[in-house]
Design a protein around this nucleic acid. Structure first.
Lengths: 153, 153
DNA sequence: CGTGAAACTACAGAGTC
DNA sequence: GACTCTGTAGTTTCACG
């Protein structure tokens, strides 16, 4: 596991926050030249520490302001139904996050839509058509307090 | 609002999934040259549609495997307490997401830690030291079904 | 939106300690 | 094994048409 050192960690911390930083800029912060930084990043990508690089969009500007947390409980808990549910969730593109949970609630979903009506339609025509859903409890986000893709490392 | 066209949307869709795509590659997909793509991206950054570019890390490899959803209800709901809570959450670096909700539960938090013990310590020494917290309900993620920073646009 | 040129970066050696 | 240095290919950036 720990085949990364402090320099690698620093690189990861930087790229988590700003992937546009050049190897040169990172090198200066670490008192190194660009080459070792370049090679370390290559290695971190190859080993899978860095999965990908993405652009983060402003959800209000792209008209996906309404964020909803939806808690789902299944009627029956056999393997086949759970498997099927997970597959179907993958295909619902409004769903940004979905976690299989350990408590009474089976799944927690985070969904982004342009409006409350759009969420209503999503539930009516997409989510609730999945069989074996028992309880379905939606609550709306009033305010985004904090939201980052970066880990504290 | 809609001062972006289909070409801009396509650019956003691409960069949301892979920010390393070059202007040249995007241009080829759209049957254009690199210049207009470059200018459009610049504009999308300037107008705020694109907030930033980040590297996405593998949480297992960096030893942040345990994801917990924590639902918090406040004891008193006056403005000052809510404000204070929101500020303090900003400083808790284990907290990756925090939303102010519309239901019985006031806040939903997503927290990443190396282990269950680390989560326990987080609650004991950090989260629960915030005053005015009433109910605090933690459930653990068994499996990450889906998880993306991209919006369906 | 296209062309073309300048500046910079990424990338791939060769060599040092 | 990890670094520095150097050179080249490719990209970004930005004139101008």
């Amino acid at each position: 596991m720990e085949d990364i050192d402090e320099i690698d960690l620093t690189i990861l911390r930087i790229l988590q926050k700003d992937a546009k930083k050049t190897t040169k800029e990172i090198a200066q912060l670490l008192n190194l030249t660009a080459s070792p930084i370049y090679e370390r990043i290559r290695r971190l990508e190859k080993k899978g520490f860095i999965q990908k690089y993405v652009a983060i969009l402003d959800k209000k500007l792209i008209n996906r302001s309404v964020t909803t947390i939806c808690q789902v409980s299944m009627r029956y808990h056999n393997e086949a139904f759970i498997q099927k549910f997970e597959e179907q969730i993958q295909n619902l593109e409004e769903v940004q996050e979905c976690y299989h949970m350990a408590g009474q609630v089976d799944f927690i979903l985070k969904i982004n839509t342009p409006s409350l009506e759009a969420y209503h339609d999503f539930v009516k025509y997409k989510l609730s058509t999945i069989e074996n859903i028992g309880v379905l409890n939606s609550t709306f986000v009033l305010k985004d307090i904090k939201h980052t893709s970066a880990f504290y490392i």
